[in-house]
Design a protein around this nucleic acid. Structure first.
Lengths: 210, 210
DNA sequence: CTTTAATTCAAACAAATGTTTTAATTAAAC
DNA sequence: GTTTAATTAAAACATTTGTTTGAATTAAAG
């Protein structure tokens, strides 16, 4: 068993189980059983359960946020070239679309998106603390882009609206092929393109509300 | 120690700790320690940890949902009397405002609102399952009211927008005097009236987006 | 091939957890 | 006051959990 293989298998299993059951409710024995490795391998390769969580985040979030940042900068540059304000819709799309694209790229990515969504909205938890550390730079970039798009909007109102948007996005990330929001008969069968567009329409309208 | 006192103390402690740490991460020993009762009292009075959770929800959610339902029906009746469609804003206010009003009524209520917010957005967990059972009727009423307000909107789009709104509301429920969303420098010091209005404005615009 | 380093293995450790059990205490009924 | 019912208390049970330990195995280096 190669070193890279063991680590990958642990990361894959952890990603899946953290997403499904949360950080605290996922035991290391469940992860190692799923990964078919020995329990002590977690400590050997990652040091601790928390460090494993950080590794899970880092593996996927750095590239995802890089994509988001590139998309955002593209929107801003295009607007500056044309001497106009960036469009809120383009900004929100730049942030949201890579999320859904990424989710569709492979099964593990779907679990990861679920884990992010879950971690954003869980107060005071280890996962959230770790996640926000990774998210802080991109959220800063996002709020600055929105300030350019909506310069007359009071800063606190803008940030609150962004906060609501993040809540809506995070909530949407929970859905997958197996999960449905039963009270509203919502199923995740909706194709991802129209779901993305619906969400972008919703948050754009909310950001621009007068 | 009277019977009502013990039960209340357990419920109060459970409410607070479930909100802070979640259902699974809160041990019965933590609850009973906080409530200053014996561990076996939980089993004696409630039967199981899960039944305690249900009792926590039931205690607060039934009156809260009753208020919401009354408010919704009032909006609908007023509109029907005037022979017009109900306003989306009025509908969302009828659903959201009692939540914030309730949160401000006492410290325990704030914990409870946090617990709801937390439970709505946690996939596949005991708390969510229990909560949605209580929420199903009011969500049905809400979606019906919105259908009256937005009769031309395709039903699935309406339901998705409602789902996004619930995500935004749930995310907002996490904030309290101690908690802030650090990446955006958001603090819960914003007065509740303007926060309520900001959220209602946001989701109303999102629901009405064209 | 031998030596060193890396990795895996299995057991152990100390602590935590929900539920159950039995005895003791308290409260209510008469 | 006595009897019955309700409630609390403390211990036990069986299981689970993250971390650690030392030995065994495998891989890499020379």
């Amino acid at each position: 068993m190669s070193r890279l293989d063991t680590k990958q298998r642990i990361l894959d299993a952890a990603e899946q189980l953290f997403a499904r059951d949360g950080f605290h409710r996922t035991s290391l024995r469940a992860i190692t059983s799923k990964a078919k490795v020995n329990l002590a391998a977690v400590n050997y390769h990652f040091g601790s359960k928390k460090a494993l969580l950080e590794a899970v985040f880092e593996r996927r979030l750095l590239p995802l946020n890089r994509t988001r940042k590139e998309r955002l900068e593209e929107v801003l540059q295009n607007a500056r070239k044309r001497g106009v304000r960036p469009e809120v819709r383009d900004i929100m799309r730049a942030f949201i679309e890579p999320t859904f694209r990424f989710r569709e790229s492979e099964p593990g990515a779907q679990d990861f998106i679920k884990l992010i969504g879950r971690s954003i909205v869980t107060p005071d938890s280890t996962a959230k603390t770790v996640l926000l550390r990774f998210m802080k730079p991109i959220l800063k970039t996002l709020s600055e882009a929105l300030t350019e798009a909506l310069p007359e909007l009071p800063k606190d109102v803008l940030l609150w609206r962004l906060y609501f948007s993040i809540g809506a996005l995070a909530h949407t990330m929970h859905l997958d092929k197996r999960f449905q929001f039963e009270p509203l008969n919502l199923k995740a069968e909706t194709d991802v393109k129209s779901l993305t567009n619906m969400l972008i329409t919703f948050v754009t309208a909310g950001m621009e509300a007068s």
